[in-house]
């Protein structure tokens, strides 16, 4: 059942990696990249989460069933967020509307 062991050095390396990623995230936020910033920050967060999941939470050594739960959780959150946020984002752009009265938001 156990394919890969989590060892003390691995834990330490993961911890350091998490700290580095945190400062990387902090650093990019100071660059003033605008919209891209959020995407980068979230991408870094996802990487950090994967580190926590696989090493700290020992997901590497666990059965597929447990991994499936994680996959489903991520999938459903992504789904909930995208399909929900697609609504306000496409209200004005699909179909493109020339007249302002039809746009619900000024």
């Amino acid at each position: 059942m156990i394919s890969a062991h989590v060892t003390t050095p691995k834990l330490v390396v993961s911890w350091l990696a998490l700290l580095v990623l945190t400062f990387l995230s902090f650093g990019t936020s100071r660059l003033g990249l605008g919209e891209a910033e959020l995407v980068i920050a979230l991408a870094i967060s996802v990487v950090k989460t994967l580190v926590v999941l696989f090493i700290f939470m020992h997901l590497v050594e666990q059965r597929f069933a447990n991994r499936l739960i994680v996959i489903l959780t991520f999938l459903f959150i992504v789904l909930l967020v995208t399909l929900t946020v697609a609504d306000p984002l496409t209200r004005k752009t699909f179909p493109p509307r020339p007249d302002p009265a039809a746009s619900p938001y000024p």
Binding site: A86, D87, T90, F94, P95, P104
Partner: peptide, 11 residues
């Protein structure tokens, strides 16, 4: 309900 047409089509 005031859903965007795009979202309505996808759903």
């Amino acid at each position: 309900a005031g859903l965007s047409e795009f979202d309505a089509g996808v759903f």
